[in-house]
Design a protein around this nucleic acid. Structure first.
Lengths: 127, 127, 127, 127
DNA sequence: GTGGTCTAGACCACC
DNA sequence: GTGGTCTAGACCACA
């Protein structure tokens, strides 16, 4: 996994974990990878992963069994979806519209690109 | 002008200047406000504006006449549009599509929201 | 290290860093001194060193690992050499030739002076 | 005339004037262009040309007849040559040699480039 | 007047 | 610990 450098790494990892949950790969009461495990896999400092898990724990997306590890919360999908949707509608969408306007891009063009995107990503997504 | 605190001020100012150019309010070979002038207007430190102008100069959006000031580059609109479009296509759009997919949002819904957005913002934009 | 006062300090530091790389003293993926560290060593303000590193990062001579520090880019030597050579051929050399012409100096004389220069500097350079 | 942006314009103009004298185009006790005249020709602020002339007057390359203008000093060629040569030997040459060394360029290559330069510039120079 | 550089010092997020 | 941003204020060369 490679990280964008305009966004904190721990947040990018949080997004990654959230997506795994959203995609149903990690489901309710599954154990998520240990801090050390994930840190090694992603080649980051364990502190960074720890921060991710703290964040997700605060959002009640995962919970902690002391000495054992972190686990996916029962209503994790709902939580993640709510959080994601709010940010999308409040922040991403207005900026997206502003860009459409300033760059004079038509929604039809977006539609076409979206279809191409879907075609390209659907199978790999569900792999 | 008020600044978000999750993005560097000097970049927000750069975006502001770029938009002025994109909207045609500052045009080719116009003098942009002097560093001090803009700093006072925006209530920031001159160094911060200086940094903005350095950035825009590197992007060849503005150029410098020594001892006189900064001026809008002849092809500034093209430059700004190219930079903005690239970031939009490379970064914003894929993430946007990913969100649509993950949140199971239909493009039709986006369309409706866009029309509402346009209706709300068109007049204020061209003021 | 002492600085000339007709050239910005941050550029002189950049030249210094570039030379270290060119001379092979700092090599690919080495960590360069931290901003604060180098600032103390050179007795300048950290901001000044920061500016140097920004510059070198833009030139892709060094890269950043967030929270860890700056590192010499894998192809830093190539980059530095290319940048230096371009400036040399485009700017320095034509002016040099013009001076030879205007001052009526022969290349033979230059050759002799060069040999003297080499003799004087070779050992100290490779120290 | 176009100016490099790493050197003060007034010094570039001074260099230009000096070269005219060195090339014998303006000779002893000739009147040099008036400040205003030269400023218009070079598209710079008259103050800038004034500064050039002050500089050259300090170096005793030109002298002033009040109310009439500036004139080439009788020994201007000697003066210019001495000044130019000193800077060349003290500053330009050592830096030149350092570049040869760091970029691993052979004097033979310089020789070849010099011949090409001469061939290309001799006629246009004496036009 | 203009930009440009530098210092001192603070505060912050991130790793 | 690391970089990154920002302020306040100074000083300078240049046009």
């Amino acid at each position: 996994m490679e990280f964008k450098d305009n966004e904190p790494i721990y947040l990018q990892i949080a997004a990654y974990v959230s997506e795994q949950i959203l995609l149903g790969k990690w489901t309710a009461d599954d154990k998520v990878p240990s801090v050390r495990e994930l840190a090694v896999a992603l080649q980051v400092n364990p502190n960074t992963v720890m921060r991710t898990y703290e964040q997700l724990q605060n959002q009640e997306v995962i919970y902690n069994k002391r000495g054992i590890g972190f686990f996916v919360a029962p209503d994790a999908v709902k939580k993640v979806k709510a959080l994601k949707k709010e940010r999308f509608l409040q922040q991403d969408l207005p900026e997206f519209f502003r860009n459409l306007f300033l760059l004079d891009i038509n929604l039809d063009e977006i539609q076409q690109r979206y279809e191409a995107y879907i075609a390209q990503n659907l199978e790999s997504e569900t792999r």
